[in-house]
């Protein structure tokens, strides 16, 4: 059974593409045949984060328009088996993604035996974001511990619950909360919303907490999904989230302040 997962947030810049790349890579590492699709038509970026920007020949819109086959457009990852990337086009035509076109691509991926189809949503609640979530079975809502991000996540949840295909047929999209750029120090200091606060406000189950980490920027600089950085806290937190997504019961890590030594405590 194939599953369509949308990675969405409403707000921009919270880490959707970083998370999509990490999640798709993590699922593939676990042996699942996985495709990750960039829905941000006009502002393609998943290719960069995945480090395949120089291998893009055809894109999502080419496939929808019949200018290329899906096989021609899918980029096979060289690091992880079973991982394929479908880049967005750089056309400025926002209506390039038709509902029928998106559906036909998703159906073809399902028929090809893909276990997971990860849809990297653009920011906003315009057509691209709507197309990314419309066919979803599950949604990973990426949220920063910050008021505007939490509010936008709540609005996206509303759209998932009322306007997705699942909602239209009376089903629900399974929702997961992924908190990114989390800083336990700032939570302790009282100037950042805690994970508990966010869970209480959005009332959806927590999939993972990704700590603020320099390795995320380093990973994007070098076009390596951060989940492949097995030594980094962010990479480990994404790996944990994947295990949880696949049904394992793993305790959350990196949510508390690392113990500081005496001198560090004294001199801050």
């Amino acid at each position: 059974m194939s599953k369509v997962i949308v990675v969405t947030s409403g707000k921009g810049g919270v880490g959707k593409t970083t998370s999509s790349a990490a999640i798709a890579t993590g699922l593939a590492e676990k042996g699942n045949k996985t495709a990750v699709i960039d829905f941000d038509v006009g502002l393609r970026n998943l290719d960069l984060i995945m480090g395949v920007e120089r291998r893009v020949v055809y894109d999502f819109v080419n496939v929808i328009n019949g200018e290329a086959t899906l096989k021609q457009a899918l980029i096979k990852d060289k690091r992880v088996d079973n991982l394929f990337i479908l880049p967005a086009s750089q056309t400025r035509d926002k209506d390039a993604l038709s509902q029928e076109g998106v559906e036909s691509v998703i159906e073809e991926l399902k028929a090809d035996g893909f276990d997971y189809i990860v849809c990297d949503s653009p920011a906003g609640i315009e057509k691209g974001a709507f197309m990314a979530l419309y066919f979803a079975d599950e949604a990973i809502v990426v949220t920063n511990p910050e008021v505007s991000s939490v509010r936008d996540s709540d609005r996206i949840l509303g759209i998932l619950q009322s306007r997705s295909k699942a909602a239209e047929r009376g089903d629900t999209v399974k929702e997961h909360l992924l908190v990114t750029r989390y800083s336990p120090e700032r939570v302790e200091g009282g100037d950042m919303l805690s994970v508990d606060d966010i869970v209480e406000i959005l009332s959806i189950p927590l999939l993972g907490v990704i700590p603020e980490s320099g390795s995320v920027l380093q990973a994007s600089n070098s076009g390596q999904p951060v989940i492949l950085d097995k030594a980094s806290t962010a990479g480990m937190a994404y790996s944990d989230a994947i295990d949880r997504f696949l049904g394992e019961d793993i305790p959350h890590r990196f949510m508390d302040i690392e113990k500081k030594g005496f001198f560090k405590k004294l001199f801050g």
């Binding site: 609640i125 910050e146 008021v147 939490v150 509010r151 709540d154 609005r155 996206i156 949840l157 509303g158 759209i159 998932l160 619950q161 009322s162 306007r163 939570v187 200091g189 009282g190 100037d191 950042m192 919303l193 805690s194 606060d197 209480e200 406000i201």
Partner: peptide, 29 residues
């Protein structure tokens, strides 16, 4: 010494989101 602004953030969000839900903003009906 800064005061606890996270608490204010949480309270503001709770009020706002309850209001938006009641008004049917976003997809919330």
């Amino acid at each position: 010494r800064k005061k606890n602004t996270a608490k204010a953030a949480k309270e503001r969000l709770q009020i706002l989101i309850a209001h938006e839900h009641a008004m049917g903003a976003g997809g919330h009906k």
